[in-house]
């Protein structure tokens, strides 16, 4: 797949001297959903803000569809829609006025039919004449999305779209993201929630302290960095790992009712087969065996901690 956004050695030092981004390089593919995962202050918003033209880069460059974001900003910005992290809206404006404003701002001629569809898709149509301050927080967030979609962008940035959003609305948001992708929009979202990245992203990038630690397909990331766990449930609890199994690095769990074996899926010999044979020969009675893959959460915590 060809890349739609190309970020090259991007750095940002804020006027206070704080280095919010250091040497970030990343290619965002056309039509994908990319999740940027990182703790508070990691630099996610800074990265997005630079691409959208709100913050000036200190070093490095970014191109969108091959156009430089600084010298050809008219082209690049017209392709991008941005849903900011904060609920920044003119509280006295009506929903309809604010999305008409957004559309015009991005150089598109008025199109009431299209905007009507956007509002209907976001269940905001019946609120179109309401002042924004009379809407709930979740509705306000959807108004921000409507504003971002008002000019038919082909790239959409969602900066923490589900912060402070209830479970139902979060699911709705995921569906919306999915349907936008289906219509060909490239989506970049930031999130603190690992489940969110796991649920909707194709690829995940992990950012911490201004550095992009890793970017990869969600599944590959789990494969590459993830561990598998084999959980052996026993009929009878044991007090310690039997001598003949000591060459595997086993742990006891559930008061001795479970033996846990953690292994690397990618190693030459996972040791699983040998372990099973050894258990078979031992006096242990098996009740059940389950395996599990470590979640992105574990990977994330691992990555951030080892930095």
């Amino acid at each position: 797949m060809n890349s739609v956004i190309s970020i090259n050695n991007l750095s940002k030092v804020y006027t206070g001297g704080h280095k919010a981004l250091s040497d970030v390089s990343l290619d965002i593919r056309s039509g994908e959903i990319l999740a940027l995962l990182g703790p508070n202050g990691a630099g996610k918003t800074t990265l997005i803000s630079i691409i959208c033209g709100i913050v000036k880069p200190s070093e490095g460059s970014v191109t969108v569809n091959g156009h430089d974001i600084l010298s050809e900003y008219r082209i690049t910005r017209s392709l991008i829609g941005l849903v900011p992290q904060e609920l920044t809206l003119g509280m006295f404006d009506t929903v309809w006025n604010t999305i008409c404003f957004s559309r015009g701002l991005f150089g598109k001629k008025p199109d009431a039919g299209y905007l009507e569809k956007v509002l209907k898709d976001l269940s905001l149509w019946d609120k179109k004449d309401n002042a924004i301050m009379t809407l709930s927080g979740g509705m306000k967030r959807r108004v921000l999305i409507a504003k971002a979609l008002s000019h038919e962008p082909s790239i959409l940035f969602l900066d923490e779209p589900t912060a402070g959003v209830d479970v139902k609305l979060r699911k709705d948001m995921w569906e919306l993201v999915e349907s936008l992708r289906a219509s060909g929009v490239t989506i970049i979202l930031t999130t603190h929630y690992i489940e969110e990245a796991e649920a909707i992203a194709d690829r995940v990038g992990v950012i911490d302290k201004g550095r992009l630690l890793v970017v990869d397909d969600k599944d590959a990331l789990k494969h590459k960095l993830g561990k598998r766990q084999l959980c052996i449930e026993l009929e009878n609890a044991i007090e310690s790992v039997p001598q003949e199994l000591s060459s595997w690095n086993l742990e006891l769990a559930d008061d001795g009712n479970q033996i846990i074996y953690t292994y690397d899926t990618y190693s030459e010999d996972t040791g699983v087969a040998g372990l099973m044979r050894a258990i078979d020969k031992s006096s242990l009675d098996l009740k059940d065996i389950t395996t599990s893959q470590s979640s992105l959460e574990d990977i994330f915590i691992n990555l951030v901690e080892t930095q």
Partner: peptide, 16 residues
């Protein structure tokens, strides 16, 4: 006012 409320982000991110 838009600087104060933060809505200026939209003007800054627009092709203008």
């Amino acid at each position: 006012f838009p600087r104060f409320t933060g809505t200026i982000y939209e003007v800054l991110s627009a092709p203008i």
